[in-house]
């Protein structure tokens, strides 16, 4: 990734027309990528008649009515609380057991480790809906349906294959000599892991944590089937507003809900852009 700053840049030799074309192309891309968010946020503060007006207006009277209706009237704050509980629970458990497993997989050379990784890879590729009939059936029969613990445990398990693969690639970059030195100094394996390895693993843990967070926070498929009424997460609660195209006020509450869900994610990208990019390229560039 690192590159000396004196490397000849393609821009140095670019003819003018290509430079102009590149700039136009990139501007179009940035607009395409960001405009839906910009517009959604803008119209969420308008009355329906201004939000979907002909012709579209850039400036219209401000109202926070939809947010008030949604958060207080429809008790969206409860869904926010649910999402927080689920996301934090998944994040903590997933990273804890994932770190332990990934560390062992990075340091153990036996056949079992190899097969575990291979099976995890296959699990990672399974579409989530594949497991859903079993979850719904079993947790219904067991009387554990519609509970925080159930959804957390399911999301943790589904998240594991990805988590251990990613964390393992970070652990592989930490030299083995580091643990060996700690072991020679009289640490047990677990002490070496906690006191020596974890402190240098933070970048990897944060990056993996971001993706675990996104998986739990963004999930619709499983959450919407495993939780009901007051236990719903924000994302699955949105389905109530999704097909309300003929009820303008309901639709606008949906827009406000979508903006509410997006806001934490935008903050996340602002703060962790570097880690997100490194996580995306981790699997690819390092192989």
């Amino acid at each position: 990734m690192s590159q000396p700053s004196d490397t000849p840049n393609l821009a140095d030799r670019m003819p003018l027309w290509l430079m102009v074309l590149t700039c136009i192309g990139l501007t179009v891309w940035v607009l395409a990528a960001a405009f839906p968010f910009f517009w959604m946020t803008l119209i969420s503060f308008r009355l329906p008649v201004d939000a979907f007006s002909v012709p579209p207006k850039l400036i219209a009277p401000f109202t926070a009515e939809h947010y008030w209706q949604l958060w207080v009237g429809d008790r969206f704050w409860l869904k926010f609380l649910n999402s927080t509980i689920i996301t934090v629970g998944v994040l903590v458990i997933s990273l804890t057991i994932g770190c332990l497993a990934a560390y062992a997989l990075a340091r153990y050379g036996g056949a079992l480790g190899f097969w575990l990784l291979l099976v995890a890879l296959i699990f990672r590729a399974l579409p989530h809906v594949t497991l859903l009939p079993s979850y719904k059936f079993a947790f219904f029969e067991l009387g554990l349906w519609n509970r925080y613990e159930t959804l957390i445990v399911i999301l943790v398990a589904i998240n594991q294959p990805f988590t251990i693969w990613m964390l393992r690639s970070f652990f592989m970059n930490i030299p083995k000599e580091l643990d060996e030195a700690a072991l020679v100094d009289g640490c047990s394996r677990i002490q070496a892991f906690v006191k020596v390895i974890l402190p240098v693993m933070w970048p990897g843990i944060i990056t993996t944590g971001l993706f675990s967070f996104l998986l739990a926070y963004n999930d619709f498929l499983i959450s919407s089937q495993m939780m009901n009424a007051d236990k719903m997460t924000m994302t699955s609660a949105l389905s109530a507003y999704m097909n309300a195209d003929d009820d303008a006020f309901k639709l606008m509450q949906g827009v406000a809900g979508a903006v509410s869900i997006t806001a934490p994610l935008v903050v996340l990208v602002l703060f962790f852009q570097k880690q997100l990019v490194s996580g995306l390229t981790q699997g690819a560039v390092k192989g």
């Binding site: 990139l26 940035v30 839906p36 994302t235 979508a258």
Partner: peptide
């Protein structure tokens, strides 16, 4: 550029689809 590009990628898929539908 990277910030703007990350938005569609990390946003909740349901929300991303809705934001386009509303256009």
């Amino acid at each position: 550029l990277i910030f703007a590009s990350l938005l569609p990628f990390i946003v909740t898929p349901v929300v991303g689809s809705l934001s386009i539908k509303w256009l």
